[in-house]
Design a protein around this nucleic acid. Sequence first.
DNA 1: ATAGGAGCTTACTTTTAGTAAGAAGCGATA
DNA 2: TATCGCTTCTTACTAAAAGTAAGCTCCTAT
Lengths: 141, 141
Amino acid sequence: MLCGVSARPQPPESLPGGTADDAFRSDCLARVVLDHVTSRWGVLVLTGLAAGPLRFHELRTKIEGISEKMLSQTLRTLVRDGLVERTVEPSSPPRVSYSLTPLGEGLTRPLQQLFVWIRDHAQLVSAAQDRHDTRSDGQSD
Amino acid sequence: MLCGVSARPQPPESLPGGTADDAFRSDCLARVVLDHVTSRWGVLVLTGLAAGPLRFHELRTKIEGISEKMLSQTLRTLVRDGLVERTVEPSSPPRVSYSLTPLGEGLTRPLQQLFVWIRDHAQLVSAAQDRHDTRSDGQSD
DNA sequence: ATAGGAGCTTACTTTTAGTAAGAAGCGATA
DNA sequence: TATCGCTTCTTACTAAAAGTAAGCTCCTAT
């Protein structure tokens, strides 16, 4: 469960594609975190909260297609991971809102870059799919 | 299927957390791409290839825990998406190697930043989990 | 010929996600 | 006060995705 996990924050010199490989080992903390973050809805929830706190149903509305069950489940995981904070306002009907913790905010920087890349290149990917499908005929997505 | 997808590459001015929301709509190309990229093994495969081309079994070894079926399946999806290229060397036993396309290489930049963040903060997340579990007692991962 | 490795694919099982319904707590309405 | 509706979830039940294990084809080495 511990792998090469050390307490030192490690300077980011190993960016160029050589190291940062912790997540490749299946018994590493990094892999667990990666799994949570890139879980089906994790990325969307984290990025959805990047612009500010939202209540349960606001999030559910923002993230089209998520079920209440999965939203609830994903939020619980992220709260446990210390990435998201659950706040209950003690108002008459108690309102529950979710926001990023400082830790979670740090995470959204790479995630938002991913979103930007995807937004800017989605059509290229789609075009590649079309080319592939016409070339080798047959299957769709 | 088309959503707000336009052919323009859109300047990245909308980074600060406001826009880049395409992926939030379930019928958008961006959502499909996000699903493929952040699929259970997609991130690992893409990042695994960031350092250079690898053959099937090399990848399988590098990405601990992936089954041959899922590696094969994930690779097929990414090849179709134009992010990964499959090359068959016409040598005596034909060797199949996989590499990132230029498109795929662009993607690995945000992904590697994600990996670096996770590597550097995995212990913090783990600590948060421990705090959470001792506070509210009970459940594990 | 026989064995063994590479690169997959196919059947079958387990895990995970989706659907739909409902419970608990409150407020307003009739 | 009784019913309705809103919010935040939870709980069965079903469908889809991933895991497991075996096998298949093509090749080479023994």
